[in-house]
């Protein structure tokens, strides 16, 4: 009960709602870090996934590497990139966190894009070719839309992981909501710790829900289940 009161008091303090260390600013930093990393991850992993998914070449190798990549502990990668990023003169905080987060987004997006494209019914692909589509058209206009639900599912996994790991960025002097937790540990302020944990948890769950919604809604009705079988089915 005392803990609840402390947390409520922390939220109630107007000082915690303004400035660099204020809640709106920390949320913005967190979303910026996560959003940029996810965008960069999509830019990198999506074309790669479409390419190997469409051609089938290098697939098992890429998937093997990506699967090992999934076993990299996110905290370890965050700290391991720090000396490298500092060596490049990019400074603390923002860039080390972004680089680590991007590394984390690639495996789920790549694997799901590849799997999604490989899973498209060969008959549909043949039909597209029969209609005179070029290979890149087949990949982008037929395979990619059909694989979209699986790709979004992979992006959802990546997004939730990124939001979670962005909070660990505080360890390498980044902004974001993790600051409240680590600063709370250091200052022994339970209210600050719990408030930070609540905000991060809500943001992660909201991200998960948002992508869940996209997964269900974001797919064009033309290729919902049923249509996948196509005219031949």
């Amino acid at each position: 009960m005392e803990l609840l009161a402390e947390t409520a008091a922390w939220f109630g303090d107007p000082a915690h709602w303004s400035g660099t260390d204020g809640i709106p600013s920390r949320i913005t930093q967190h979303v910026q870090l996560s959003g940029l990393a996810l965008l960069a991850g999509l830019v990198l992993a999506l074309p790669m996934g479409v390419l190997i998914g469409h051609t089938g070449r290098g697939g098992p190798l890429a998937i093997g590497i990506a699967n090992i990549g999934r076993a990299i502990p996110s905290f370890a990668i965050l700290v391991m990139v720090l000396p490298l990023v500092l060596g490049l003169g990019l400074g603390l905080g923002f860039w080390p966190t972004i680089v680590a987060l991007v590394v984390l987004t690639i495996p789920p997006i790549l694997v799901n894009t590849y799997t999604g494209l490989r899973g498209v019914d060969p008959e549909i692909i043949e039909a597209a070719r029969g209609m005179g589509m070029r290979e890149h058209q087949v990949a982008l206009k037929v395979e990619l839309p059909n694989a979209l639900p699986i790709i979004i599912a992979g992006t959802r996994v990546a997004a939730v992981q990124v939001v979670a790991t962005a909070s660990l960025g505080a360890v390498v002097a980044s902004g974001g909501l993790g600051r409240y937790i680590l600063d709370g540990f250091a200052r022994q302020e339970d209210g600050r710790i719990i408030a930070g944990a609540l905000l991060v948890a809500v943001l992660a769950i909201a991200t998960d829900q948002l992508f869940g919604l996209l997964e269900r809604r974001g797919v064009s009705p033309g290729i919902r289940v049923g249509a996948i079988r196509g005219p031949n089915g």
Binding site: T20, L86, G89, G91, L92, A173, R179, L182, D183
Partner: peptide, 21 residues
């Protein structure tokens, strides 16, 4: 002007100072 939370007198602080953060 601003307090920037870093580490306890460790390399992160040294780095922030050298980088002009």
């Amino acid at each position: 002007a601003e307090f920037v939370p870093l580490d306890v007198g460790g390399p992160i602080t040294v780095e922030a100072l050298t980088n002009g953060e």
